[in-house]
């Protein structure tokens, strides 16, 4: 009971004093250090040897006792400096599909850190990083989650590195999102996209191979209509052209449903979005109450999938 209360207090303290950041450097205030079980046994050994050396008036036993004691004291420093100034940064958000394990790409930075154990606080799943010397790209494995978007929980870093006499640990909080998209599931009996009657009606065949659109960052300069630029220098206009003749424009629709039906629909939509992206089509997403315009590319796919995750 008391333990639980203390733990709650401690968590509140952590949340107050160490809010989530994209990049965390382990400073003095964030590192905790206590003797491990072996450390306590080791201290007992030092005491026993001291008594033995005293009773036999044997300086060599006293010497070995003091040697182990100095080792114990020094290990405290070494264990602390093993974690000190370790820097963790989030590289990107974690993405996965439901029922698939996710990994959060992290960057670890330390001059010399060994035998670092990483995991989410309160979780059994832990990972071991043998050596960090300089910069290390690291994938933090996350537990299986159901569809949605989660904040990254607080991490637990720990190490016993030299001699295991001291436990040195920290609870850094990194600000990162864990996106869990619906699992992709092929709709039964509707293997071919082009024959999908639902989407057939929404296909908008293009008249001609070119059209005009406002300039967007990333458009090729040679496609800018220079003649029009003189009239409106702030808003250049570019010609847009499709490469092939077989241009597909498809809308993926998620019906207004709930419960298992919604999940199934989302899974189908996920599957179709991936198929469309793979086929190089332009596609949009129709959600109940929300529409994502036509587009293509991995960023577009990501946006669509994120909408599905939040649905």
């Amino acid at each position: 009971m008391l333990k639980r209360l203390l733990q709650q207090k401690f968590q509140a303290y952590l949340a107050r004093s160490q809010p989530a950041q994209p990049s965390v450097c382990l400073t003095q205030k964030r590192i905790y250090i206590l003797p491990s079980r072996l450390g306590l046994w080791f201290a007992l050994l030092v005491l026993i040897l001291y008594l033995l050396g005293t009773n036999y008036q044997n300086n060599l036993i006293l010497l070995s006792s003091f040697m182990l004691l100095s080792l114990l004291l020094l290990t405290m420093l070494l264990a602390f400096y093993n974690l000190y100034r370790l820097k963790l940064s989030v590289v990107a958000d974690a993405e996965t599909f439901a029922n698939q394990p996710a990994a959060l790409p992290l960057q670890l930075n330390s001059a010399n850190c060994q035998m670092l154990q990483l995991g989410l606080q309160g979780q059994r799943l832990q990972q071991l990083v043998p050596v960090i010397s300089g910069q290390l790209a690291f994938a933090l494995q996350l537990p299986l989650l159901s569809r949605g978007c989660y904040e990254l929980p607080r991490l637990k870093l720990s190490s016993q590195f030299p001699f295991g006499l001291f436990n040195c640990w920290s609870y850094p909080a990194l600000s990162a999102q864990l996106w869990v998209y619906p699992a992709a599931l092929a709709p039964t009996g509707q293997q071919n996209l082009d024959e999908d009657p639902d989407n057939q009606g929404q296909t908008q065949p293009l008249e001609g191979s070119e059209w005009l659109k406002p300039y967007q960052a990333g458009d090729q300069p040679r496609r800018i209509l220079w003649k029009k630029l003189a009239t409106n220098p702030q808003q250049p206009i570019v010609r847009q052209q499709q490469d092939g003749n077989t241009v597909n424009e498809q809308w993926v629709k998620v019906p207004n449903a709930s419960g298992a039906a919604l999940e199934l629909a989302l899974q189908h939509a996920c599957y179709r979005l991936q198929q469309l992206e793979g086929a190089g089509s332009r596609y949009g997403l129709l959600l109940p109450g929300k529409t994502l315009a036509l587009g293509q590319g991995t960023q577009h796919l990501q946006r669509c999938l994120q909408e599905l995750a939040l649905c």
Binding site: T54, L63, M67, L69, S70, L71, L74
Partner: peptide
């Protein structure tokens, strides 16, 4: 680092008569 601690303890840590 360890050697001064070690020898310092040996030289200066209080000694007891046999208990």
């Amino acid at each position: 680092l360890a050697l001064p601690i070690w020898l310092g303890l040996f030289l200066l840590f209080p000694r007891l008569p046999p208990l």
